[in-house]
């Protein structure tokens, strides 16, 4: 139940984050404005960040405990095991979750703390001291390796959510026999839309559809 509730919080964040990011397609002013808007929130931004951090930590902490209990529940493994209905995603939530965690850490280091790419320091802020997030994203994703890792990370996130985004209904008891298959399908569609939305950014940049707003 705790996993489900923290999961919902994180899913909501993932949706919001995508909507913000997709503004890159509208133009540099939109996304830079959006970014500045967030920064202007000041202490509130930190409060939200701490809240999300807490959600992540609780989500992971509780699931790891549950996973340990689950291991103990079957001390001797099957020599031969076939699954009839359980999907790959549902059986490897811990693994996909942990890889996504690594991805998130890299992602924060990349864009929030900005320690992985020296070029970001070369980007000029505007006269009011606002970051040019737009160009940061474009330069960041022009590297095939970086983009590749992002797509991989997003893929695992999608895998994680393809199970998680409908599973929480079950954990919270918010479904019935008829609803369950529909929720599962809906969850999968939702997740892969999310994946398409997120990956569209690096793909568009690599294809040259989006160009930096300023030269280094």
């Amino acid at each position: 139940m705790i996993v489900a509730i923290t999961g919902i919080i994180l899913i909501l964040f993932v949706i919001g984050h995508l909507l913000g990011n997709l503004q890159i397609f509208i133009g540099p002013d939109w996304i830079n404005g959006y970014s500045q808007h967030l920064r202007d929130l000041g202490p509130l931004l930190w409060a939200v960040r701490l809240f999300l951090l807490a959600a992540v930590i609780i989500h992971i902490w509780v699931t790891i405990q549950l996973a340990i209990e689950n291991r103990r529940a079957r001390p001797e493994a099957y020599m031969d095991k076939q699954y009839v209905k359980a999907t790959f995603a549902s059986r490897h939530m811990v693994m996909s979750g942990l890889i996504v965690l690594v991805f998130i850490i890299y992602h924060l280091a990349h864009f929030t703390v900005r320690v992985t790419d020296n070029r970001f320091t070369l980007l000029r802020a505007d006269p009011l001291g606002h970051y040019d997030v737009y160009s940061m994203m474009v330069y960041g994703f022009q590297n095939y390796l970086v983009s590749g890792f992002y797509v991989l990370g997003l893929f695992l996130l999608a895998l994680h959510l393809s199970h998680g985004s409908s599973s929480f209904f079950q954990s919270l008891g918010l479904n019935d026999k008829k609803l369950t298959p529909r929720l599962a399908l809906g969850g999968r569609i939702f997740t892969w839309l999310l994946f398409a939305g997120y990956t569209s950014i690096p793909v568009a940049i690599l294809l040259g559809l989006i160009k930096p707003a300023q030269q280094l």
């Binding site: 549950l66 689950n70 529940a73 079957r74 699954y83 209905k85 999907t87 549902s90």
Partner: peptide, 13 residues
């Protein structure tokens, strides 16, 4: 000592 449900639905199958 039973494990926890992670909604894989293998049970009902």
């Amino acid at each position: 000592g039973f494990g926890n449900c992670t909604n894989t639905y293998e049970c009902e199958a």
